[in-house]
Nucleic acid binder design. Sequence first.
DNA 1: AGCGAGCCCTGCGCGC
DNA 2: TGCGCGCAGGGCTCGC
Length: 310
Amino acid sequence: MPELPEVEVVRHGLAPAVTGATIERVEVLDERSLKRHDGPAEDFIDRLTGARLVAPVRRGKFVWMPVAVGDGSFGDPVEALVVHLGMSGQVLLRSRGADDGPLTRIRFEIVHPEHGELLVNFVDQRIFGSMALDVLQATPDGAAGGYGSSLALVPGQVAHIARDPLDPAFDDAAFVAALRRRRTGIKRALLDQTLVSGIGNIYADEALWAARLHYDRPTASLPVARVRELLTEVRVVLARALEEGGTSFDALYVNVNGASGYFSHSLRAYGQQGKACPRCGGLIVREQFMNRGSHFCPRCQPRPRRRRAA
DNA sequence: AGCGAGCCCTGCGCGC
DNA sequence: TGCGCGCAGGGCTCGC
Protein backbone atom coordinates (compact mmCIF):
# COMPACT_ATOMS: atom_id res chain seq x y z
CA MET A 1 0.00 0.00 0.00
CA PRO A 2 2.03 2.59 -1.37
CA GLU A 3 1.63 6.07 -0.08
CA LEU A 4 2.12 7.56 3.36
CA PRO A 5 -1.43 7.12 4.73
CA GLU A 6 -1.62 3.48 3.67
CA VAL A 7 1.82 2.75 5.08
CA GLU A 8 0.93 4.52 8.31
CA VAL A 9 -2.17 2.36 8.59
CA VAL A 10 0.15 -0.64 8.44
CA ARG A 11 2.60 0.77 10.99
CA HIS A 12 -0.21 1.64 13.34
CA GLY A 13 -1.79 -1.78 13.00
CA LEU A 14 1.48 -3.59 13.47
CA ALA A 15 2.61 -1.65 16.53
CA PRO A 16 0.61 -3.36 19.29
CA ALA A 17 1.37 -6.83 17.94
CA VAL A 18 5.09 -6.57 17.20
CA THR A 19 6.36 -4.20 19.91
CA GLY A 20 8.10 -6.44 22.41
CA ALA A 21 7.37 -9.57 20.38
CA THR A 22 9.98 -12.24 19.70
CA ILE A 23 10.41 -13.82 16.28
CA GLU A 24 10.31 -17.58 16.72
CA ARG A 25 10.51 -18.61 13.11
CA VAL A 26 11.13 -16.98 9.74
CA GLU A 27 10.24 -18.52 6.39
CA VAL A 28 11.28 -16.97 3.10
CA LEU A 29 8.95 -18.37 0.46
CA ASP A 30 10.24 -16.15 -2.32
CA GLU A 31 13.77 -14.77 -2.21
CA ARG A 32 12.86 -12.01 -4.65
CA SER A 33 11.14 -10.30 -1.74
CA LEU A 34 14.57 -9.85 -0.13
CA LYS A 35 16.07 -7.76 -2.91
CA ARG A 36 16.87 -4.95 -0.49
CA HIS A 37 18.56 -7.37 1.89
CA ASP A 38 22.32 -7.47 1.57
CA GLY A 39 22.87 -11.20 1.82
CA PRO A 40 21.24 -14.56 1.19
CA ALA A 41 17.92 -15.65 2.68
CA GLU A 42 19.76 -17.82 5.23
CA ASP A 43 21.45 -14.73 6.62
CA PHE A 44 18.10 -12.93 6.90
CA ILE A 45 16.57 -15.93 8.64
CA ASP A 46 19.48 -16.59 11.00
CA ARG A 47 19.79 -13.03 12.18
CA LEU A 48 16.05 -12.57 12.77
CA THR A 49 15.24 -15.87 14.41
CA GLY A 50 15.03 -15.22 18.13
CA ALA A 51 15.16 -11.45 17.66
CA ARG A 52 12.97 -9.19 19.75
CA LEU A 53 11.35 -6.28 17.99
CA VAL A 54 10.71 -2.82 19.36
CA ALA A 55 8.16 -0.23 18.23
CA PRO A 56 7.82 0.09 14.44
CA VAL A 57 8.82 3.39 12.85
CA ARG A 58 7.74 5.00 9.58
CA ARG A 59 9.36 7.58 7.40
CA GLY A 60 7.56 8.32 4.15
CA LYS A 61 6.68 4.96 2.65
CA PHE A 62 9.28 2.97 4.61
CA VAL A 63 8.55 1.13 7.84
CA TRP A 64 11.14 -0.52 10.03
CA MET A 65 11.15 -2.49 13.24
CA PRO A 66 14.36 -2.09 15.24
CA VAL A 67 15.75 -5.24 16.81
CA ALA A 68 16.37 -4.95 20.55
CA VAL A 69 19.89 -5.61 21.78
CA GLY A 70 19.90 -8.14 24.62
CA ASP A 71 17.06 -7.38 27.00
CA GLY A 72 16.93 -3.81 25.71
CA SER A 73 18.67 -2.24 28.70
CA PHE A 74 22.17 -2.31 27.19
CA GLY A 75 21.69 0.33 24.57
CA ASP A 76 20.05 1.32 21.33
CA PRO A 77 19.20 -1.18 18.62
CA VAL A 78 21.85 -1.57 15.92
CA GLU A 79 19.74 -3.05 13.17
CA ALA A 80 16.17 -3.12 11.96
CA LEU A 81 13.78 -5.16 9.86
CA VAL A 82 12.95 -2.78 7.01
CA VAL A 83 9.74 -3.06 5.00
CA HIS A 84 8.84 -1.35 1.76
CA LEU A 85 5.48 -2.25 0.26
CA GLY A 86 6.31 -1.20 -3.29
CA MET A 87 3.18 -1.15 -5.42
CA SER A 88 1.32 -4.12 -4.04
CA GLY A 89 2.82 -5.14 -0.70
CA GLN A 90 0.77 -5.95 2.38
CA VAL A 91 1.65 -6.92 5.90
CA LEU A 92 -1.04 -9.11 7.38
CA LEU A 93 -1.43 -10.05 11.00
CA ARG A 94 -2.98 -13.45 11.45
CA SER A 95 -3.50 -16.01 14.12
CA ARG A 96 -1.22 -19.04 13.94
CA GLY A 97 -2.57 -21.74 11.68
CA ALA A 98 -4.30 -19.30 9.33
CA ASP A 99 -3.86 -19.98 5.63
CA ASP A 100 -0.98 -18.13 4.01
CA GLY A 101 -2.51 -17.33 0.65
CA PRO A 102 -0.63 -17.81 -2.62
CA LEU A 103 1.05 -14.39 -2.69
CA THR A 104 2.72 -14.69 0.71
CA ARG A 105 6.45 -14.20 0.18
CA ILE A 106 7.78 -14.11 3.74
CA ARG A 107 6.19 -15.28 6.95
CA PHE A 108 7.10 -14.75 10.59
CA GLU A 109 5.87 -16.68 13.56
CA ILE A 110 6.06 -14.31 16.48
CA VAL A 111 5.11 -14.48 20.12
CA HIS A 112 4.00 -11.43 22.05
CA PRO A 113 4.02 -11.36 25.87
CA GLU A 114 0.44 -10.12 25.92
CA HIS A 115 -1.15 -11.16 22.63
CA GLY A 116 0.48 -14.57 22.40
CA GLU A 117 1.37 -16.43 19.24
CA LEU A 118 0.78 -14.60 15.97
CA LEU A 119 1.63 -14.78 12.30
CA VAL A 120 3.02 -11.84 10.34
CA ASN A 121 2.73 -12.38 6.60
CA PHE A 122 4.44 -10.26 3.97
CA VAL A 123 2.21 -10.56 0.92
CA ASP A 124 3.20 -8.97 -2.37
CA GLN A 125 1.71 -9.59 -5.77
CA ARG A 126 4.15 -7.70 -7.97
CA ILE A 127 7.25 -8.09 -5.79
CA PHE A 128 8.19 -4.44 -6.14
CA GLY A 129 8.22 -4.30 -2.37
CA SER A 130 10.69 -6.08 -0.13
CA MET A 131 12.03 -6.71 3.32
CA ALA A 132 15.58 -6.44 4.57
CA LEU A 133 17.61 -6.48 7.72
CA ASP A 134 19.63 -3.29 7.68
CA VAL A 135 22.03 -1.43 9.96
CA LEU A 136 20.72 1.61 11.81
CA GLN A 137 22.60 4.87 11.80
CA ALA A 138 22.20 8.13 13.72
CA THR A 139 20.00 10.81 12.17
CA PRO A 140 22.07 13.84 11.12
CA ASP A 141 19.67 16.25 12.85
CA GLY A 142 19.45 14.22 16.05
CA ALA A 143 15.65 14.05 15.83
CA ALA A 144 13.65 10.83 15.83
CA GLY A 145 14.20 8.71 12.72
CA GLY A 146 10.51 8.73 11.89
CA TYR A 147 7.02 8.42 13.26
CA GLY A 148 6.32 5.86 15.96
CA SER A 149 9.44 6.01 18.11
CA SER A 150 11.76 8.55 19.69
CA LEU A 151 14.91 6.67 18.61
CA ALA A 152 17.14 9.03 16.61
CA LEU A 153 18.08 6.23 14.23
CA VAL A 154 17.35 5.39 10.63
CA PRO A 155 18.26 2.34 8.50
CA GLY A 156 21.10 2.96 6.05
CA GLN A 157 18.87 2.33 3.05
CA VAL A 158 16.37 4.92 4.29
CA ALA A 159 18.90 7.61 5.19
CA HIS A 160 18.62 9.36 1.82
CA ILE A 161 14.82 9.55 2.10
CA ALA A 162 13.63 12.98 3.21
CA ARG A 163 11.41 13.39 6.22
CA ASP A 164 7.72 13.39 5.40
CA PRO A 165 5.38 16.37 5.83
CA LEU A 166 3.70 14.87 8.91
CA ASP A 167 7.06 14.46 10.69
CA PRO A 168 7.45 17.02 13.53
CA ALA A 169 11.09 17.41 12.49
CA PHE A 170 10.16 18.27 8.89
CA ASP A 171 11.76 21.63 8.13
CA ASP A 172 9.19 23.70 6.23
CA ALA A 173 11.51 26.60 5.43
CA ALA A 174 14.25 24.31 4.17
CA PHE A 175 11.76 22.43 2.01
CA VAL A 176 10.36 25.62 0.49
CA ALA A 177 13.85 26.86 -0.31
CA ALA A 178 15.02 23.53 -1.74
CA LEU A 179 11.93 23.17 -3.88
CA ARG A 180 12.30 26.64 -5.35
CA ARG A 181 15.95 25.96 -6.16
CA ARG A 182 14.93 22.98 -8.28
CA ARG A 183 14.63 23.43 -12.01
CA THR A 184 11.80 21.05 -12.60
CA GLY A 185 8.02 20.66 -12.61
CA ILE A 186 6.10 20.68 -9.35
CA LYS A 187 4.70 17.15 -9.54
CA ARG A 188 8.09 15.68 -10.29
CA ALA A 189 9.40 17.48 -7.21
CA LEU A 190 6.53 16.23 -5.02
CA LEU A 191 7.26 12.67 -6.09
CA ASP A 192 10.99 13.01 -5.39
CA GLN A 193 11.37 11.14 -2.11
CA THR A 194 14.72 12.79 -1.42
CA LEU A 195 13.01 16.19 -1.27
CA VAL A 196 9.86 15.24 0.63
CA SER A 197 8.72 11.68 1.27
CA GLY A 198 5.46 9.82 1.49
CA ILE A 199 3.72 11.40 -1.51
CA GLY A 200 2.88 9.18 -4.46
CA ASN A 201 0.80 9.57 -7.58
CA ILE A 202 -2.60 9.73 -5.90
CA TYR A 203 -1.86 12.30 -3.23
CA ALA A 204 0.31 14.37 -5.56
CA ASP A 205 -2.65 14.76 -7.91
CA GLU A 206 -5.01 15.45 -5.01
CA ALA A 207 -2.77 18.07 -3.41
CA LEU A 208 -2.07 19.80 -6.72
CA TRP A 209 -5.79 19.92 -7.41
CA ALA A 210 -6.45 21.41 -3.97
CA ALA A 211 -3.71 24.01 -4.50
CA ARG A 212 -4.92 24.75 -8.06
CA LEU A 213 -1.51 23.98 -9.53
CA HIS A 214 -0.78 22.28 -12.85
CA TYR A 215 1.58 19.32 -12.54
CA ASP A 216 4.18 20.83 -14.85
CA ARG A 217 4.32 24.24 -13.20
CA PRO A 218 8.02 25.09 -12.82
CA THR A 219 9.04 24.95 -9.17
CA ALA A 220 11.29 27.96 -9.54
CA SER A 221 8.33 30.09 -10.62
CA LEU A 222 6.34 29.45 -7.45
CA PRO A 223 6.19 32.23 -4.88
CA VAL A 224 7.07 31.17 -1.34
CA ALA A 225 3.45 31.63 -0.28
CA ARG A 226 2.24 29.26 -3.02
CA VAL A 227 4.69 26.58 -1.95
CA ARG A 228 3.56 26.94 1.64
CA GLU A 229 -0.04 26.70 0.51
CA LEU A 230 0.75 23.53 -1.41
CA LEU A 231 2.52 22.05 1.61
CA THR A 232 -0.58 22.77 3.67
CA GLU A 233 -2.77 21.01 1.10
CA VAL A 234 -0.41 18.04 1.07
CA ARG A 235 -0.77 17.77 4.83
CA VAL A 236 -4.54 18.14 4.68
CA VAL A 237 -4.98 15.42 2.08
CA LEU A 238 -2.59 13.02 3.83
CA ALA A 239 -4.27 13.58 7.19
CA ARG A 240 -7.77 13.13 5.75
CA ALA A 241 -6.77 9.93 3.98
CA LEU A 242 -5.27 8.68 7.22
CA GLU A 243 -8.50 9.35 9.08
CA GLU A 244 -10.40 7.31 6.53
CA GLY A 245 -7.97 4.40 6.73
CA GLY A 246 -6.17 5.07 3.45
CA THR A 247 -7.17 4.66 -0.19
CA SER A 248 -8.27 1.25 -1.43
CA PHE A 249 -9.47 0.48 -4.91
CA ASP A 250 -9.63 -3.23 -4.33
CA ALA A 251 -8.59 -5.97 -1.93
CA LEU A 252 -4.92 -5.30 -2.72
CA TYR A 253 -4.72 -2.29 -0.42
CA VAL A 254 -5.73 -3.23 3.04
CA ASN A 255 -4.73 -2.82 6.66
CA VAL A 256 -3.04 -5.51 8.72
CA ASN A 257 -6.41 -7.17 9.20
CA GLY A 258 -7.17 -7.23 5.51
CA ALA A 259 -9.74 -4.40 5.65
CA SER A 260 -9.96 -1.64 3.05
CA GLY A 261 -9.81 2.10 3.60
CA TYR A 262 -12.44 4.54 2.48
CA PHE A 263 -10.53 7.47 1.05
CA SER A 264 -11.22 6.42 -2.55
CA HIS A 265 -14.67 7.93 -2.02
CA SER A 266 -13.07 11.28 -1.25
CA LEU A 267 -10.82 11.60 -4.29
CA ARG A 268 -11.36 14.81 -6.24
CA ALA A 269 -8.91 14.43 -9.11
CA TYR A 270 -7.17 11.06 -9.09
CA GLY A 271 -9.09 8.61 -11.23
CA GLN A 272 -11.85 11.17 -11.81
CA GLN A 273 -11.19 11.75 -15.51
CA GLY A 274 -14.38 12.50 -17.39
CA LYS A 275 -16.15 13.59 -14.22
CA ALA A 276 -16.97 17.13 -13.16
CA CYS A 277 -14.42 19.04 -11.13
CA PRO A 278 -15.98 19.38 -7.64
CA ARG A 279 -14.85 23.00 -7.56
CA CYS A 280 -15.66 24.50 -10.95
CA GLY A 281 -17.68 21.83 -12.75
CA GLY A 282 -15.18 21.55 -15.61
CA LEU A 283 -14.12 18.11 -16.78
CA ILE A 284 -11.20 16.40 -15.04
CA VAL A 285 -8.72 15.06 -17.58
CA ARG A 286 -6.03 12.39 -17.43
CA GLU A 287 -2.70 12.82 -19.15
CA GLN A 288 0.36 10.62 -19.35
CA PHE A 289 3.24 12.15 -17.38
CA MET A 290 6.32 10.43 -15.99
CA ASN A 291 4.90 7.13 -17.26
CA ARG A 292 1.92 7.57 -14.99
CA GLY A 293 -1.50 9.09 -15.20
CA SER A 294 -1.83 12.70 -14.12
CA HIS A 295 -5.32 13.87 -13.28
CA PHE A 296 -6.26 17.52 -13.12
CA CYS A 297 -8.85 20.14 -13.93
CA PRO A 298 -7.67 22.20 -16.91
CA ARG A 299 -9.80 25.10 -15.78
CA CYS A 300 -8.69 25.30 -12.13
CA GLN A 301 -5.17 24.08 -12.84
CA PRO A 302 -4.23 25.75 -16.12
CA ARG A 303 -1.13 24.59 -17.92
CA PRO A 304 1.83 26.95 -17.42
CA ARG A 305 1.87 29.52 -20.21
CA ARG A 306 5.38 28.82 -21.29
CA ARG A 307 6.95 25.39 -21.20
CA ARG A 308 10.04 25.15 -19.09
CA ALA A 309 13.23 25.70 -21.04
CA ALA A 310 14.38 22.32 -22.32
C1' DA B 1 21.34 18.57 -11.62
C1' DG B 2 17.77 16.62 -13.82
C1' DC B 3 15.49 13.58 -16.96
C1' DG B 4 13.93 9.73 -19.72
C1' DA B 5 14.24 4.99 -20.22
C1' DG B 6 14.59 0.59 -18.49
C1' DC B 7 14.08 -2.59 -14.97
C1' DC B 8 12.23 -5.21 -11.06
C1' DC B 9 7.05 -8.33 -11.37
C1' DT B 10 1.96 -10.25 -11.38
C1' DG B 11 -2.84 -9.99 -12.17
C1' DC B 12 -6.76 -7.50 -13.44
C1' DG B 13 -10.19 -5.64 -16.71
C1' DC B 14 -11.04 -4.40 -21.12
C1' DG B 15 -11.87 -4.82 -26.15
C1' DC B 16 -11.86 -7.77 -29.84
C1' DT C 1 -15.08 -18.15 -23.84
C1' DG C 2 -10.50 -16.89 -24.75
C1' DC C 3 -6.67 -14.07 -25.76
C1' DG C 4 -3.69 -10.09 -26.05
C1' DC C 5 -2.98 -5.65 -24.44
C1' DG C 6 -2.79 -1.83 -21.39
C1' DC C 7 -3.12 -0.66 -16.92
C1' DA C 8 -1.66 -0.36 -11.84
C1' DG C 9 -0.68 3.53 -5.88
C1' DG C 10 7.19 2.74 -6.31
C1' DG C 11 11.92 3.26 -6.59
C1' DC C 12 16.50 2.28 -8.23
C1' DT C 13 20.20 2.63 -11.74
C1' DC C 14 22.06 4.11 -15.89
C1' DG C 15 23.49 7.16 -19.62
C1' DC C 16 22.95 11.61 -21.55
